[in-house]
Amino acid sequence: MLRPSALRQLLSQGTAGTIQATILTTRSGEYLDYVLRNDLQNQSVSSSSLNQSQKNQINVKSLCAIICSVYQSYQKLSHAFADILNYVIIDCDMYRLAIRPVGNHLICICADSNTGLGILKLKINSLADSLSSILNFAIYS
């Protein structure tokens, strides 16, 4: 069974340091849950922060769509290579995104552009391992 409170806790644990957001989506691009670092810092609810959270939600929705389409593109290649895709890292000028499948879902870490790739890889792998127990799904291996 899915436990939303435990899920949120785990995602917020991963969102620390230079990591800006952690997003859990389905493979078709609908987000299940997300934690932003700004939300963690501003816990008090006011009208302005509500507006901000609505804006963030829009950003997360578009981000989810981009993540899923990029991931699915590289998933197609894995058939051709006769290989299994572990994770994808996208390095832009603003963000570094790490995407990894967890069962039927995708987990994405959105970090600053100066975050080390090694720490990103470690975080996404450990988060996927912990999430698999919460989501009660076996990781594709």
Binding site: D83, N86, V88
Partner: peptide, 16 residues
């Protein structure tokens, strides 16, 4: 995702 049209890198890690 990027504001400027600067260079981008994509890394895909497979098993082999």
């Amino acid at each position: 995702l990027s504001k400027t049209g600067s260079s981008k890198t994509i890394m895909a890690n497979y098993n082999n």
